[in-house]
Design a protein around this nucleic acid. Structure first.
Lengths: 327, 327
DNA sequence: TTGAAAGCGCTACCAG
DNA sequence: CTGGTAGCGCTTTCAA
């Protein structure tokens, strides 16, 4: 400690922390010494003593994905407002990695956790929660434990999108989406089915492709939907990755379909036609989750909250092509 | 410490750290106690003793920007390989915030720093570096201090892009870019000027717009370039933000220009025509920077390195429209 | 193979 | 107003 260096001894702590009870004169002397010796307080040690680390951990699927990076930014801003630093880690949708990451953050004694879960079982978090780590789940709820969660209205959003296509006159509407083992994917598929049922429209197995991972999968799925005498005239895509893959394949095939996608994406408005989407608001999700986390950290009690955010239909052209205008 | 709880006392440490010299029997007993009591090692305390924190700090402009989020992901992957956790912070291009963030990371005693600088003066880092914090700068070099840096060939990339337009037969080529006070922006503008000079083409002041921040600015700039009897037939955009704004404005105007943009972006290939770009590789930049950082952390000496990465011309259509084919 | 003590850098608490 | 002392939870060093 640079105490003796200046002149005073462990009064340094007081001046560093702006505590009351120090003569301006001595304070100034200490400050000079600090400056001269290049003293840097070790927050690690400080926070070992005080108990909280003024840092939170964010575990998400992939920080490189624009959706999550937008969310991440919102979380960071709220954390900054509260004087907290942010640890980030990508799980790559791997439950084991999620767990490792989360536990590593806990070992660092983060004050709180924001988790976009990849795992279905978060009982491993129970001891941590008992030890006082606050945690908020985003995009998908926690598995097997009660915890705060900020979610989108996945089913409702998909229903709105498909209903929009129906209202344009479409009767044969396809669906391409993720593995229904994924929480959001299952709900979106459900929304699709609900919309059809509500309109009294028949579904058909060949019109649905789940667990489509890549371009090849999309190619096969589309080929199936477009084959035969009564091909699909419209398509609902379960996420923006699929939407983009479909757009590429449609371009290759030289075909046009009326199309609505779940999730907005950059430049969706600049394509021709513009892509109609069901938009979530990742920033808003991050902001709300982070605010809730800090309220918990501030001592707010009450049962686990489940906040569901509405989605928004943004019409840009691709979803407003009636069946008769298709080539 | 959960020592007395199990049975043994501070032998726990040995077990937790897989140190040699523990009977399997006692080890098992300790492990059981750990499990039972839900013991969680406090890495903060551990690392206070050992001196290194197994964490690095990344300060960038905006984690919400796809370019930086891709870079960030690459850094995270390398950090993970080395058993390090990652602090992330966005400076919003504000020198003060960059400094705050960096110093906050240093107070947390991160082992190393990866900085995408917003500031022109990094002398504030000197004491930290003297204290042993390794640091690598990315995208732009450090200001006023010698430090490792990983950069793109901004001038060369811009020169390639503009030369490409010239080779398509264009003689009146405009440039819209950022404030030349920004390191990368100045170099890209220089590349543009160099390419024109090299081809013996005249420049014209009205063809250049620097420090264009928003859609309104782009609108004005384009109007100027397209006015008169000898309007610009091609355009080089200094960054992807500008490229997208230009695309929107051209769509509004119903005009076409041959166009090359610095920086690749999602869906550039799906637009009609596809957008020809000079691509950087943000992942590669992040990866290289992080690897260099960990080599420094491992004790590699030598003078500050300056690594310059090549850019890549990706032709997709927009840059291959000859002047005579423009409406 | 195991135990005890010292100390990392800081703040909390109680004396002076 | 200022100083000393204890101790946060861990590792390290030396002794048993």
């Amino acid at each position: 400690m640079a105490a003796r260096a200046g002149v005073a001894l462990k009064t340094v702590s007081r001046v560093v922390n702006d505590e009351p009870g120090v003569t301006p004169a001595t304070a100034e002397r200490v400050r000079a010494a600090i400056e001269a010796l290049g003293f840097r307080r070790n927050d690690g040690a400080r926070l070992l003593r005080t108990g909280h680390t003024a840092s939170i951990g964010l575990v998400l699927e992939d920080i490189g994905d624009p959706f999550y990076s937008a969310l991440s930014r919102a979380v960071e801003d709220v954390a900054h407002q509260h004087g907290s630093l942010l640890f980030t880690g990508s799980s790559d949708e791997d439950p084991l990695r999620e767990r490792e990451l989360t536990l590593a953050f806990c070992a660092r004694r983060v004050d709180g956790l924001i988790i976009i879960p990849a795992s279905e079982d978060h009982t491993y978090l129970l001891p941590e929660i008992a030890a006082g780590v606050a945690s908020v789940f985003v995009d998908r709820p926690a598995g097997l434990i009660g915890a705060d969660a900020v979610l989108s209205d996945n089913a409702g959003g998909a229903r709105t999108g498909v209903t929009h296509l129906i209202s344009q006159g479409h009767q044969r509407i396809g669906y391409i989406g993720d593995d229904p083992g994924i929480y959001t994917a299952a709900l979106r598929h459900r929304g699709y089915l609900d919309a059809l049922a509500q309109a009294g429209l028949p579904g058909q197995e060949s019109w649905t492709a789940l667990a489509v991972p890549d371009a090849a999968g999309v190619q096969v799925a589309l080929a199936r939907m477009l084959a035969g005498p009564a091909p699909v005239t419209a398509l609902f895509c379960g996420n923006s990755r699929v939407t983009v893959l479909v757009l590429r394949e449609l371009a290759v095939l030289g075909r046009t379909l009326s199309l609505v996608g779940f999730d907005d994406f950059e430049l969706a408005d600049l394509l021709t036609p513009g892509i109609t989407v069901i938009a979530q608001d990742p920033s808003e999700m991050g902001r709300i989750a982070a605010k809730l986390l800090f309220r918990r950290l501030a001592g707010e009690g009450g049962p686990a909250q489940r906040i569901e955010l509405a989605t928004r239909l943004i019409t840009r052209g691709s979803g407003e092509i009636p069946p008769e205008r298709l080539g």
